[in-house]
């Protein structure tokens, strides 16, 4: 996305928060950030409310951390970075997509931040290909013609989960999120004909 990414930062220490913002700014990726320095009693709710691309979280501030909120129905999952000391227990570390060790050196911190931002940017895939694949085009056509994910899965003999992954990639590549937006794209690019669609 060419858009600013949205970051949720939950960390008690002012100095660490400021340090993280400096680190983030040096990456040159525009962002907006919501900061919390006090214990959070409902992380699910907060994540749903803010809808972040990236969560920088010190697990000490979460009361009863069982699972990190994941939203399968949402196209964009937040990416979780744990703000943890190196001796934190593994079962805590394992919940995060990435760990940022607070006593790490600058170059290490930079590397991790850069990698995480790149992953968010590319919807968690390492490839930087921006044109649509054949498969994505056929899925895009079906979406534009008004098929649901399940209908598409049935027609193409793939799982609904796979359809979802393709759709995320299509949205990422084109910068178009809504079905009607994809329909307009498909018509402009003559993938489908205006007469084929109803209600456009």
């Amino acid at each position: 996305m060419s858009n600013r990414i949205c970051i949720l930062l939950i960390e008690p220490s002012f100095l660490i928060r400021e340090g993280l913002k400096t680190l983030l700014s040096s990456q040159g990726q525009p962002y907006r950030i919501e900061e919390f320095d006090a214990p959070v009693d409902d992380l699910d709710k907060l994540v749903n409310r803010i809808n972040p691309d990236l969560v920088l979280l010190n697990p000490k501030l979460v009361i009863r951390l069982i699972n990190l909120p994941r939203r399968n129905e949402n196209i964009f999952e937040p990416y979780y970075i744990g703000l943890i000391e190196s001796d934190a227990p593994t079962h805590i570390k394992g919940k995060f997509d990435q760990i940022l060790n607070l006593d790490a050196e600058k170059s290490e911190l930079n590397k991790i931040m850069e990698k995480s931002l790149r992953l968010i940017h590319n919807g968690n895939s390492e490839t930087e290909n921006t044109s649509l694949s054949e498969r994505e085009i056929s899925i895009l056509k079906l979406v534009a013609l008004g098929n649901t994910n399940n209908e598409i899965a049935d027609k193409l003999f793939i799982s609904a989960h796979t359809v979802m992954t393709h759709r995320k990639n299509i949205t990422r590549k084109l910068g178009i999120k809504t079905v009607s937006g994809l329909t307009v794209y498909a018509i402009l690019n003559q993938l489908i004909k205006l007469e084929e669609v109803q209600g456009v």
Binding site: N48, K177, G181, N189
Partner: peptide, 24 residues
């Protein structure tokens, strides 16, 4: 309210890219 408060910017976001990238 909070739970079904959806964002209203998605279509606008799309329109932007349609105009910037795809409209001849």
């Amino acid at each position: 309210y909070e739970e079904d408060h959806d964002d209203v910017e998605s279509k606008l976001f799309d329109l932007k890219n349609i105009l910037i990238k795809y409209l001849p």
